[in-house]
Design a protein around this nucleic acid. Structure first.
Lengths: 173, 173
DNA sequence: TTGGAATGTCAACGAGGCTGACTTATCCTC
DNA sequence: GAGGATAAGTCAGCCTCGTTGACATTCCAA
């Protein structure tokens, strides 16, 4: 419980009405957040699911299918459909692990990297505009609230991937 | 207050890496944000779409289908399926408009209000915890960034619904 | 008074979640 | 080196919730 120092705001920021506003802000903002990439994806007949996979593969080249599964929080059957399409379209390559040959390490191809860049440029541009409009202090608050809103295991994954040790590199080069 | 003290941060908060972190935070937080209601909905074989409709009907009793369509940003055919189910389950009532008989004005029934309350309690509880953990200043920043991230028309809707004039009341009582 | 605009409904399709059952390949332990 | 555990992939089938297309009803303005 916040004490007197923070005054009126401290009393207001947890009212049901304020919380409802926060909930709706989350809903509307998420729509905006996905709108730009969705347009690009539609041109190539891909969906949001493909974007998510591309994003994480781009962020962590060489990550395994199993790890991607954890990050995305879907079933392997569901991911498999997405991944198969990405490989077919020549956007992602799956390489047999060198240490553990059961694993498949995922990398973007040139084309995959290009698409991922286009998607993430669009999304970053919107995020950048929002960050710029709101200012550094607001950005700090934004992230604090979002992190507090995650499920604990997700937060762990989120933080853990920040500065991760090198993964298995490409072999076929 | 951000002055010289925040120096480095001000330079950092727009780097690609920072933006990527923001993007992922958004993704993971949205998962957390919907997790609790999803569990409750699953028990009654309802989905997220039903939750969204219930939310807006609860917030603005008597709103028309057309207006709800704007808020949700889906096709009327898609909304119709959801609404039909809600009416069948006795959670929502649709009343023919008195002034314009083409319109349908939506209200929650007792049961609908109870379910909506359960859902929104769960979601508010998580939001409250996040707000409390992050503090009032962070909440302010959180909302600033989210609002800046919305599409302009959505932001207009978001702000406009804040304090709206009375809508058509229930007739069949 | 009639034709266009607004509103709402029905039907059918597709993406992408899900469960369940299973195979294959590989690893690791005893 | 046999046998269980683990990583990945597959097939089948289901459900939700998006989509488009066609159509009915109601209102209002020419």
């Amino acid at each position: 419980m916040p004490d007197r120092a923070t005054g009126g705001q401290a009393l207001l920021f947890l009212t049901d009405e304020q919380l409802r506003r926060g909930i709706e802000a989350m809903f509307f903002a998420y729509r905006g957040f996905t709108a730009d990439p969705d347009r690009i994806l539609a041109e190539r007949d891909l969906g949001r699911a493909h974007h998510r996979a591309l994003h994480f593969v781009a962020r962590s080249p060489g990550l395994t299918v199993g790890r991607l599964l954890l990050l995305l929080g879907v079933t392997k059957q569901s991911l498999n459909r997405v991944l198969r399409r990405l490989v077919q379209d020549g956007l992602v390559e799956a390489q047999v692990g060198r240490e553990d040959r059961r694993e498949r390490h995922l990398h973007l191809t040139e084309a995959g990297a290009a698409l991922e860049r286009a998607l993430s440029d669009a999304q970053r541009e919107r995020m950048r505009a929002a960050f710029r409009a709101a200012g550094p202090a607001a950005v700090q608050g934004f992230r604090q609230v979002l992190e507090a809103m995650m499920d604990p295991e997700l937060r762990r994954l989120f933080e853990e991937e920040r500065d991760r040790p090198a993964r298995e590199g490409r072999t076929g080069r």
